[in-house]
Structures are given as C-alpha cells and as structure tokens.
C-alpha cells in the first residue's frame, strides 16, 4: 500500500517545527508502524536527507518508549496498542497519516517525534518506592495479599510510563500516570508504610513539573495502551484527602 505521511519535523528543543509531507510506497501490511518509519528513514538517507528521529526500544509493547500522536490519537486508533504494536494493516491504501510528538510543557520536544519524559521519572523518584527490610530473601507468602488487592495493584502496575495519558488529556495532566503509580503501591501491604506521605509527595512533584489538572473527561483511560482504569485517579484523590487528615492528626 501507498501512504502520504505528514510528520512533525523539529531540529531541537527551541527550534520551530512544522509538518512535512512524505510519501511511502509499497508498504507491507504486516509491517509495524515503526518498521514503516524505518523504511521511510532508509529512503531519506539514500536521498541524503536527515532521517526522522523517533524513539523505540523493545518494540514489543512493554517499554513505553515509542509513543507519538498518530492521526490525532496517542499510539494511533487501535485500542490498547502501543505505536510499535500498531500494524500497517490498520491503515487504508492511499491514506494520509499525521504523525506528531506528544505535546505537553512537561514533555519538551527534543527532536522531531522524540520528547523528554524524564518528568515521569522525577515523579516516581519523589515517592514511588517502598521501604523493605534488606538482608536474606523473605519467605514466599510471608506477606499475605488478598486477591482483590493483588489484582488492583497489578492493573496499576501495568503502566509502562509511555505518556499517552498526558498526550490525550485536554489539560496535559499526568493524573492517570501518577494515580497508577500511587495506587499500585497503595494497594499492597508492602506499600502501607509510606502510603500517605507518598501520595502527597508525588502529587506535589506532578504539579511542580507543570502538568495540568483532571477534569474527568476520561480521554487518558481510552488512550492508555495498558487499559488503566480512570478510577485510579479517584483512588489517588481519596488517598490525598485522607492523607491531609491522617498526617495532620499525628
């Protein structure tokens, strides 16, 4: 199949950017979206033009490196799929595809489609950890976790930090990401020690990084390639409200 691509080109963080039109021919429908970009880049290199900068790592949908906006949606239109797992069979012959980087003040564009998502790392550093007794490995099942809590925690732990939630949010909020990280640990017995300090610290960091607020539009949860539930945000709100009471009464 043949496609027309409109791709955001931007030399550096402070350089102006624009959409540049390319055509790619003979795209195999079994290619992934990134492989299609690889093919385009090879042809650009042959012509002596600069290849399109995009991020990728595992290419199997688990690392979260490859996100970009495809036709106005993070990771494209296919449900619960990362850009690398989106295949060209999802597109029609002759289609025009617009590809842009994720846009947020806290995700500055480094080049073309690559954004700097280290603001996510800083949110995790601010409280996304637990204190454990070091030394010999604990016995299996020494800490009992009930099934419901384990399932809830696991759902949140599925977050790969790709940033699709921020990209989709009309307010560029990181509430789904932060909610997932807060409640992943908050649901488990191992995470109880710092539970109420954690939520305050991570929310404060999230604000400091310049993310917006949640208006419960639900865009993030639809865009999330891991299907993280919008309720993670309500749970985080509850923990933050409780933390105000618990920490003040100490």
């Amino acid at each position: 199949m043949n496609l027309t691509l409109k791709i955001w080109r931007q030399q550096g963080p402070d350089a102006p950017g624009e959409l540049v039109t390319y055509s790619v021919n003979d795209v195999n429908e079994d290619m992934s979206f990134l492989e299609m970009l690889d093919v385009l880049n090879e042809s650009l290199e042959v012509k002596g033009e600069e290849p399109i900068a995009f991020e990728s790592d595992c290419r199997e949908g688990i690392c979260g490196a490859c996100g970009c906006m495809i036709n106005g949606q993070p990771h494209g239109h296919k449900d619960r799929t990362t850009t690398c797992q989106l295949h060209m069979r999802e597109f029609r012959d002759g289609e025009t595809v617009v590809i842009e980087p994720f846009r947020a003040e806290a995700f500055p564009v480094l080049k073309d489609l690559i954004v700097d998502r280290s603001s996510f790392d800083r949110i995790i550093q601010s409280g996304g950890y637990i204190s454990v007794r070091t030394g010999s490995a604990p016995d299996a099942h020494a800490v009992q976790v009930n099934k419901q809590d384990a399932d809830e925690a696991f759902d949140k732990a599925a977050c790969i930090g790709c940033g699709a939630c921020v990209a989709a949010c009309p307010n560029a909020a990181a509430m789904l990401f932060t909610g997932a990280k807060v409640m992943h640990l908050g649901n488990l017995p191992q995470g109880q020690v710092e539970r109420y300090e954690r939520v305050g610290a991570m929310v404060a960091k999230m604000d400091e990084e310049g993310f917006g607020h949640c208006s419960n539009a639900g865009e993030c949860a639809v865009a999330c390639p891991k299907g993280i539930d919008l309720r993670a945000i309500a749970r985080m709100n509850k923990d933050l409200l409780l933390s105000q009471l618990k920490l003040r009464s100490k």
């Binding site: 409109k6 955001w8 959409l19 906006m69 036709n71 106005g72 949606q73 617009v98 842009e100 846009r103 947020a104 003040e105 806290a106 989709a168 009309p170 307010n171 560029a172 909020a173 310049g210 993310f211 917006g212 607020h213 208006s215 419960n216 539009a217 639900g218 865009e219 949860a221 639809v222 865009a223």
Partner: peptide, 23 residues
C-alpha cells in the same frame, strides 16, 4: 494552568471519549 501545561496545540487532535458536556 492547563493552558500552560500544553502551550502548543496538536495540528490534528481527536476526542476519544469526552462527551459534549465535558467539552
């Protein structure tokens, strides 16, 4: 704050679930 959180808008953007009421 939301405006500041996304200073540059998308050239193409699609609403995924946001209802008329939300928008």
């Amino acid at each position: 704050r939301a405006r500041a959180a996304r200073p540059a808008n998308y050239k193409q953007h699609k609403w995924l679930s946001g209802s008329y009421a939300v928008r």
